[in-house]
Amino acid sequence: MSAGITKHTEPKADPSSTDEFIKGLWRENPVFVQVVGMCPTLAVSNSAQNALAMGLATAFVLVMSNILVSALRNFIPKEVRIASFILVIATFVTIVDYAIQAISVDLHKNLGAFIALIVVNCIILSRAEAFASKNGIGKSILDAMGMGLGFVFALFCLGAVREILGNGTLFGIAVLPESFEKWIIMILPAGGFFTLAAWLLLFNFFKLKKAKA
């Protein structure tokens, strides 16, 4: 978990508001660039629908906990900040759990144990620690929305590839012909690692190309 926190790169200059939002989507994408929050990334990205629902639930917790942490940042002593952040995060995860149950029993059944696991997603803790506890509410919301959407995007990238190759479908709709031999391994945990490696390869390829230019 701490690896994720230390990996956070501080922006060089004082960034504008839009940059606060955009950076999470691309330049500092939590999954593809910071490589944090790997547990849910690998575990729930076995179908596009699971990935999307999990991403959105995480983004909601991220935004709400960033707001509360930022609002209380001058009130929380340094010594107990991590405990306080976890308390805040756990609260919003419980709220998401109730909310999803109130929306649909089936959706709650599909996500099952993953909802509770949002608590230990280190993207949320790392944003609370590295950003919200040092910045105002407005900036923290933008940061959380950017990071949250970046996470949704990354999870969807993985989920879509894994579902198409592993099951021949996207959101449960067949996209590949019947004759396609399904790569069952893509739905299994190993497929998560393969897909993540492929995406990281692509991202780093672009990064190197940009650095050379």
Binding site: L72, F75, A83, T94, Y98, A102
Partner: peptide, 29 residues
């Protein structure tokens, strides 16, 4: 004070949401 304060805020939030969603969750179940 910080821990107790945050604890109280969090507890209040959870209770509010629990109360607000209880009926609907029971009905859906």
């Amino acid at each position: 004070t910080a821990m107790v304060g945050i604890g109280v805020i969090c507890a209040l939030l959870i209770v509010l949401v629990y109360d607000g969603t209880k009926e609907r969750i029971e009905q859906l179940r």
